[in-house]
Simulated assay, not measured.
Amino acid sequence: MKTEDLVGLLSTGITPVRSGSATRRFCASLPIAAIGATLLMATVFGIRPDLGAVVKTAIFWEKLAFPVCLAIGALIATARLARPGARVGAGWPVMTIPLVVVWLAAILIVVTAAPQDRLPAILGHSWRTCPFNILLLAAPGFIAIFWAVKGLAPTRLRLAGAISGLLASSIATVAYCFHCPEMSPAFWSIWYVAGMLLPAALGTVLGPRLLRW
């Protein structure tokens, strides 16, 4: 077969990719993640009864800012990894900085607390269930975001799966903040992070299978 014939055969039936595909897919999947997590939170766990008073405190907005910043970083990374051969790029520092800030705050709280108050600050009242609650709330976003990423032809499937899972779980954690009574960074630094890492680990395992195109 001549080179010209081979090129002609390979190019047969190819149609141009519509511009803005990534934007459309994420604009569809992210609201599903946010609305799905919020509805699940309100239905399964319920909104904390003192929310009206809590939203007037700085610590609530600090708690909310933690998963919001992680979600922004994970979105940047996911949008890049959804493209063939792309790297995480600016997503890494945006994801890392809020983790470092919360861990430093947690260390300061534990070090300065009285010895009898240190373990309660870390465990809170819901450490046994918190990570699994976040995992549950991440389910709608996990499905929707994997759908979005798969259609954009990722090539680093395990990493793309992990960051997609982190994006879903960080959005779920934002919703969970409106139920969770825990107000200590020492708690968030362990149990919120554990809850967000569960879908990320699941995405690492399932990425090569679910994101293959």
Rank of each mutant, 00 (worst) to 15 (best):
M1C: 07
M1H: 08
L10G: 09
L10Y: 14
S11Q: 11
G13V: 12
I14N: 13
R18T: 06
A22C: 01
R24K: 04
S29L: 05
L30Q: 10
L30H: 13
A33T: 14
A34K: 08
G36A: 07
A37C: 08
L39P: 01
L39K: 05
L40Y: 08
T43I: 10
V44M: 12
V44W: 15
F45I: 00
F45N: 02
I47H: 04
R48D: 01
R48G: 00
P49K: 13
D50Q: 10
L51C: 04
G52R: 03
V54C: 02
A58L: 12
F60I: 11
F60Y: 14
E62D: 09
K63T: 00
A65E: 07
P67H: 10
C69G: 11
L70V: 05
A71W: 02
I72W: 04
A74W: 08
L75M: 13
I76E: 04
A79M: 14
L81E: 14
A82C: 09
R83Q: 15
R83Y: 03
G85Q: 13
G85W: 05
A86G: 06
R87A: 15
G91H: 09
G91K: 07
W92V: 14
P93Y: 15
V94T: 11
V94Y: 03
M95Y: 07
V100E: 01
W103K: 01
W103C: 11
L104Y: 10
I107W: 13
I109Y: 04
V111N: 05
A113V: 01
A113W: 05
P115F: 14
D117S: 08
L119G: 01
I122G: 03
H125R: 13
T129A: 10
P131S: 15
F132I: 06
F132K: 10
I134D: 00
I134E: 05
L135R: 12
G141F: 03
I143C: 07
A144G: 03
F146M: 06
A148M: 10
G151F: 07
A153F: 05
P154M: 12
P154I: 09
T155E: 15
L157D: 00
A160C: 11
L167C: 04
S170K: 14
T173R: 15
V174P: 06
V174G: 06
C177D: 07
C180Y: 06
E182V: 02
M183Y: 02
S189Y: 06
W191Q: 06
Y192A: 15
V193I: 08
A194S: 10
G195Y: 00
G195A: 05
L197D: 03
L197A: 14
L198N: 09
L198P: 02
A201G: 08
A201W: 12
G203W: 05
T204R: 02
T204C: 04
R209Q: 00
R209H: 02
L210P: 12
W213Q: 06
W213E: 02
